[in-house]
């Protein structure tokens, strides 16, 4: 698949926002009495900025953004519609959480529980948008959803550690340790899916695609000379060495460098991990082999 940059920014930004909010909630649950309300107000604001930026970038993926409200209507069948509902609901919960802390309204833990549930629902919706496409075997697997959750939580906790290093330094080490643990968990889950996808065998072949039983079939024309939507949308169009370079950036940026940096320089660790996650999401798209590409293998 061709990586869509709006979607790369959307999923990485809201993933970090969700992870940050979940971390804030657990900080309040376990050490809330020792912290000022300002810590949670600032943290909620940071999460809202990430979620807002993610929402804005998602609009660039649409041909008709002015009709985006319609995307909430088919929640019974479409995970994209479910995400379209879960994202604003989660933003509202984060906003309510921040306001409740700011104005000292109480019930912050109750709002926090609602927010955490919505954050997880949003993770599942985002993951299932990809996991529900059966023809893309690389995506249609529970690991897709697991990776969205684990990597989102890892980057969000790294950001929480970076935020705490300015707002509540006594928490920094604990949060950095949590970010370290989540990033290690991410190594396990993401490497599992990388391994799975690298060894996956396609179900469809050119033989089943055109229904002719012969081991040697060569495409001679694809119905157009100058390309089409089919040749643009479903292949990344980059060389194998470029894709390998992105894979190296993924491993270094998401895992190796943040693990080395998070204990000492959590802010730098977050920036590196975020850029790494952009590479990770790019690779996530690039590694998905769409069966429609069987119909676009050559022209002469």
């Amino acid at each position: 698949m061709r990586p869509a940059f709006s979607v790369l920014f959307l999923t990485t930004l809201i993933g970090a926002g969700q992870g940050l909010f979940i971390t804030l909630f657990f900080v309040e649950l376990l050490a809330g009495s020792s912290l000022s309300a300002g810590f949670f107000v600032g943290g909620s604001f940071l999460a809202l900025v990430l979620l807002g930026l993610g929402g804005i970038s998602s609009v660039f993926h649409l041909g008709h953004p002015e009709r985006a409200w319609r995307a909430m209507t088919m929640w019974r069948t479409s995970w994209l519609a479910r995400e379209g509902i879960a994202l604003p609901a989660f933003i509202a919960a984060v906003f309510a959480y921040g306001v409740a802390h700011w104005l000292n309204l109480g019930y912050t833990l109750v709002i926090g529980v609602v927010g955490v549930v919505l954050a997880i629902v949003l993770f599942v919706c985002t993951g299932m948008i990809y996991g529900a496409i059966k023809v893309l075997k690389e995506w249609a697997h529970p690991l897709t959803i697991v990776n969205f959750i684990v990597l989102g939580c890892a980057s969000g906790t790294t950001l929480a550690a970076a935020y705490a290093s300015f707002a509540a330094p006594e928490l920094t080490i604990t949060l950095a340790q949590a970010a370290f643990a989540l990033t290690v968990l991410g190594v396990v889950t993401r490497v599992s899916s990388l391994w799975r996808n690298a060894t996956l065998r396609p179900t469809s072949t050119l033989q089943t695609a055109i229904g002719i039983r012969h081991p040697r079939i060569v495409q001679k024309s694809q119905g157009s000379m100058g390309g089409s939507y089919n040749t643009r949308e479903f292949f990344h169009g980059k060389s194998a060495s470029f894709v390998r370079g992105i894979l190296v950036m993924l491993v270094l940026g998401v895992f190796v460098l943040p693990l080395a940096l998070v204990m000492v320089l959590p802010l730098l660790a977050f920036i590196v991990q975020y850029l790494g996650l952009l590479a990770e999401r790019w690779y996530f798209f690039a590694e998905a082999q769409h069966p429609q590409n069987l119909y676009y293998q050559g022209k002469s």
Partner: peptide, 26 residues
């Protein structure tokens, strides 16, 4: 008139028979 041009349907189709219209954005 309802299509928002998200292209999700074309990802789900295994045959690649849906084409996004670059002018009408649907």
């Amino acid at each position: 008139d309802k299509c928002i041009g998200c292209k999700y349907c074309s990802w789900a189709c295994p045959y690649g028979v849906r084409e996004f219209d670059e002018q009408r954005k649907v």
